[in-house]
Design a protein around this nucleic acid. Structure first.
Lengths: 149, 149
DNA sequence: CTTGATATGTTATAATATCACCTTTAGCAA
DNA sequence: TTGCTAAAGGTGATATTATAACATATCAAG
């Protein structure tokens, strides 16, 4: 599980952006200014953010002002596994383990709104039903360790 | 797992409505005409339907024409466990096991759009992260047994 | 340098969901 | 039965989330 522990934020952001750079370089993808900035914004906040919330920040920085700007950057980032969409919140969160193939599961604190990412293997459940699994959505809501106290 | 097997639809609808009646009677809730009809519509289709899709049917039957009519009925039905919301689809599906407390997991066929309901216990995952679990969203997309063939 | 593919800018609009306010109805107590 | 109260429904407006469509700009390969 990654996300609830205190950690060095600036290093975490730096590493994640570097990983994104490496991944794009390797795959022949372009991490353009808008895309990079959206990823940074999500990494800085470390929580789920709506597309329009992100768009407001982009607008303030002169990086775009219309919804498609934000949605296109988010499409790119989610398609390439750098950002995940949280269905329950209609929002987006930076991936905690970019590059690693995974079926992410999210722990969403309803109090502090932080989001941690972990794994949940649903293959056995699908197999038991004779279902050919292609994608999973696993989102848990509740209280994070800090907010329980 | 309930949903992909062929079965007697009319009996399944009848039983589910009867179960809803009993549940409401017991809990002092009112299964009003609009609420009952929304539940029946979802049971008849046996797939996830959007609020506006349901609203169109209600409108055709003279049971209401504005979005709040559908959303209020769906709120009631989801609050009392008779209907589940599928986050991934922004849609709703009748509960396969009304009355039974459960953490539902859904298997959504991308081809025929049918939805089956099963169980997924995420308590161990949450406990491992020190997370106090309050609600879960588990949705799997892929191909149902029939559509794989 | 040209060309083709990818990315961005911009306007408009679609799809989903809620608010606010008022009227009606059901259930209950006097 | 009557009147009261709480819950439910009717309706118009609007908020929130997301995409379509098309013109322009940029990049990278040949």
């Amino acid at each position: 599980m990654i996300g609830f522990d205190p950690h060095d934020h600036s290093a975490c952001i730096r590493d994640a952006v570097a990983a994104a750079d490496a991944l794009c370089m390797h795959a022949g993808l372009r991490l353009t200014p808008v895309r990079r900035r959206v990823l940074e914004i999500l990494l800085e906040r470390h929580r789920a953010m709506g597309a329009y919330e992100i768009l407001e920040l982009l607008r303030a920085e002169g990086l775009g002002s219309q919804p498609p700007v934000a949605y296109r950057a988010l499409d790119f980032l989610t398609t390439h596994g750098l950002v995940h969409r949280i269905e329950r919140l209609n929002a987006f969160v930076a991936c905690a383990t970019p590059g690693a193939a995974h079926d992410p599961a999210f722990l969403i604190c309803r109090k502090c709104e932080s989001v941690a990412e972990t794994e949940a293997d649903l293959a056995p459940v699908a197999a038991g039903a004779g279902f050919e699994l292609e994608a999973t959505v696993v989102e848990m809501q509740g209280l994070c360790p800090r907010c329980r106290e």
